[in-house]
Amino acid sequence: SKNWSEDDLQLLIKAVNLFPAGTNSRWEVIANYMNIHSSSGVKRTAKDVIGKA
């Protein structure tokens, strides 16, 4: 699996709070948010995000 930096983990926590349970396509939305805002340049999929959340 791809390494997660501390910044990416913080971003994931922020995204999970921004897009609560019940959000349509929640994990796709979170992955997309991370891909836009992450400084690491690593592209995450919904599966990556679910695996780490």
Rank of each mutant, 00 (worst) to 15 (best):
V16E: 12
N32F: 04
S1F: 10
A21T: 13
L11H: 03
I50T: 07
E28N: 06
K52D: 03
W27I: 06
A31Q: 04
A15E: 00
Y33R: 01
K43Y: 11
N17T: 13
K2C: 07
W27C: 07
Y33S: 01
K2N: 15
S38A: 08
N17A: 11
M34Y: 02
K2M: 11
S1I: 12
K47Y: 08
N35V: 02
A46Y: 06
I13Q: 15
V29G: 13
S39R: 13
A15M: 01
F19Q: 01
P20S: 05
S5Y: 02
N35L: 00
L18C: 08
S40N: 09
A15V: 04
A53F: 03
A46E: 12
W4K: 02
D8K: 05
I50L: 12
S40P: 04
N32Q: 10
V16Q: 15
V49S: 01
A15G: 09
Y33H: 05
N32M: 06
K47T: 15
F19I: 06
K2E: 11
F19D: 00
S25W: 08
P20G: 10
G51Y: 11
L11G: 02
D8S: 03
S38Y: 00
V49N: 01
G51D: 15
I30Q: 00
A53D: 11
K52I: 11
N35Q: 04
L18D: 06
L18W: 04
A46G: 07
I13K: 14
M34T: 04
W4N: 02
G51A: 13
N17G: 11
K47E: 13
L12Q: 01
A15C: 07
K52M: 07
W27D: 05
A21H: 15
I13T: 10
V16F: 08
D8R: 05
D7A: 15
I30A: 03
S38D: 03
K43T: 13
K14N: 07
P20W: 00
N24I: 11
G22Y: 07
N35P: 00
S5M: 04
W27Q: 02
E28L: 06
Q10D: 08
H37D: 05
P20M: 00
S40T: 09
I36P: 00
A21W: 07
R26S: 01
K2Q: 05
P20C: 04
V16T: 15
E6H: 03
T23Q: 09
S25M: 13
S1L: 06
I13W: 14
L9R: 12
D8Q: 04
K52P: 11
D7L: 12
V29F: 06
L9N: 15
I36N: 14
N24F: 11
M34C: 10
I50Q: 13
D8M: 01
K43M: 09
I30D: 02
T23W: 05
K43D: 13
W27A: 10
R26L: 00
K43V: 10
A31Y: 00
K14H: 12
I30E: 00
T23M: 08
N32S: 14
N3L: 10
I36V: 13
G41I: 10
S1Y: 05
L12A: 03
G22D: 13
M34F: 06
N17I: 05
A15T: 04
N35K: 01
V49C: 13
N32E: 14
G51C: 10
P20Y: 01
L9C: 12
S25Y: 07
L11Q: 03
S39N: 11
D48N: 03
N17P: 01
A21E: 15
G41D: 12
